[in-house]
């Protein structure tokens, strides 16, 4: 679901408007980490094309340190923000460092790196993602003892495999068991990836059922996933989902922009008029 519910995101969104030059300057210094944190977010948000943006963000990504659970400050928050921004710059030069971050011990950083590699459609990442997920729902997908998270950030990794788009049998077979995971968000991510890779309607059915899930968080994820695939047959179910119009609009934007290759029977015009009525 493309990181829409990101606990770190709100902090930066509250910042003051700044210029690109100022963002670069804030990233260059290292005394005030909250400034670095905001600057990294800013450069990604604005998809900076400045030649210094890539090297500075890579340096920020390298700034990570071994995690110290006793320390009050989460040092890696800045590295994670840099990883997220690198996905948005669209520069393949970020791929080697992001690949290395996929093996970092901080699962939050692995998550950010996986999403960015997906955004960059980095085919190089497929082998590492398959390796990290190889133990399946009972291994990579098992809950951790120390937190509500799973052993691997499965949702981000599955979504990355779908976004990268290598539809080889090995990839499909690895993803399939995750469609039976205990957690609906993981099932949703797995179905999304399989639908993207195979275009087979059987993977859309479970996603459309999740639009009726009792938990709002799950309904939101299914909306984002159907939107990311651009599955136009989901137009009506999306419109009737109990969730914020903002999220339905994002999903429908996906149906317009990504959907032409899935089902020509529902035209973009029908999606646009549904969007108009949700404003």
């Amino acid at each position: 679901m493309a990181g829409t519910i990101d606990p770190d995101a709100g902090i930066s969104a509250a910042g003051e408007p700044i210029t690109e030059a100022e963002a670069l300057q804030r990233l260059r210094q290292s005394e005030d980490q909250s400034q670095q944190y905001y600057a990294a977010w800013w450069l990604g948000r604005n998809r900076s094309r400045h030649p210094e943006a890539l090297p500075l963000l890579l340096a920020t990504l390298r700034q990570r340190r071994p995690r110290d659970p006793g320390a009050g400050v989460e040092e890696n928050a800045i590295a994670r923000n840099a990883a997220r921004a690198l996905g948005k710059l669209g520069d393949a030069g970020a791929i080697p460092e992001l690949l290395a971050a996929l093996d970092d011990e901080d699962d939050g950083l692995r998550e950010a790196a996986a999403r960015s590699l997906g955004e960059l459609q980095a085919t190089e990442a497929v082998a590492v993602l398959l390796r990290r997920l190889a133990s399946g729902p009972a291994g990579a997908g098992a809950p951790r003892l120390d937190s509500p998270r799973l052993q691997e950030p499965c949702e981000a990794m599955l979504e990355a495999l779908g976004a990268i788009g290598i539809a080889e049998p090995g990839v499909i077979t690895l993803i399939e068991p995750f469609t039976a995971h205990d957690r609906p968000l993981i099932r949703s991510a797995a179905c999304r990836a399989l639908l993207q890779l195979s275009g087979e309607a059987r993977w859309a059915e479970p996603l459309m059922q999740l639009l009726d899930h009792p938990q709002l968080q799950v309904r939101r994820a299914a909306l984002m996933d159907l939107g990311a695939v651009g599955w136009r047959p989901a137009l009506e179910p999306i419109c009737h989902t109990l969730a914020e119009n903002s999220l339905k609009l994002i999903a429908l934007r996906g149906l317009v922009e990504q959907g032409a290759h899935h089902d020509a029977t529902i035209q973009a015009g029908a999606v646009l008029s549904a969007m108009d009525s949700l404003l």
Binding site: R47, R253, V256, E257, A268, G269, L272, M275
Partner: peptide
């Protein structure tokens, strides 16, 4: 414009 849906809606 990074959202092509905006282009499309304006054309409509």
């Amino acid at each position: 414009e990074d959202a092509s849906v905006v282009n499309l809606r304006a054309a409509l």
